[in-house]
Amino acid sequence: MSDPAEPVILTDPLVPEAVDGYVEAIDPPDTKLKMTADAAEISGIRLLDAAAKARGD
């Protein structure tokens, strides 16, 4: 059994969506977010894209 204080390392990037002027990410963890470098990079790009869509850019 894993230690509940130890965050899970995400290997898949987040999948954010623009929804009514804000950005929503489904199933982010409830605690500290720990990601691989690749997952973080892709998530960052996806968050920027969703932010632009949410603003109507």
Rank of each mutant, 00 (worst) to 15 (best):
E24N: 04
K32G: 14
A54M: 05
G56N: 01
K32P: 14
V15Q: 06
E17A: 14
V15Y: 00
A5E: 15
P29F: 14
G21A: 11
D20E: 10
M1C: 10
T11V: 04
L33R: 07
A40D: 00
A51H: 01
D38N: 11
I45A: 08
L48M: 09
A25Y: 00
A52N: 07
G44T: 02
D38K: 05
D12H: 13
L33Q: 02
G44P: 04
L47S: 14
V8N: 05
G21V: 05
T36H: 00
P28I: 10
G56S: 00
R55Y: 09
I26K: 11
T31A: 02
E6K: 01
V19M: 03
R55D: 12
D3L: 00
A37P: 04
L14P: 15
I45F: 08
K34G: 10
A18T: 13
I45G: 08
L10P: 09
K32W: 05
A5N: 14
P28A: 13
P29C: 06
D57H: 13
G21H: 08
I9M: 08
I45Q: 08
D20K: 02
E41C: 06
P16G: 04
D49S: 10
D27Q: 13
G44W: 07
K53R: 09
D3P: 05
D38G: 14
V23T: 13
I42R: 04
A51N: 05
T36D: 04
K53Y: 02
V8W: 12
Y22M: 04
D27E: 09
T31H: 11
K53P: 08
A25C: 12
R55S: 12
P28E: 12
D30C: 11
L14D: 11
V8C: 14
E17S: 11
G56T: 04
M1F: 09
A54L: 07
K32E: 11
A52W: 05
D57K: 12
A52L: 13
D38R: 06
G44Y: 10
I45C: 02
T36P: 12
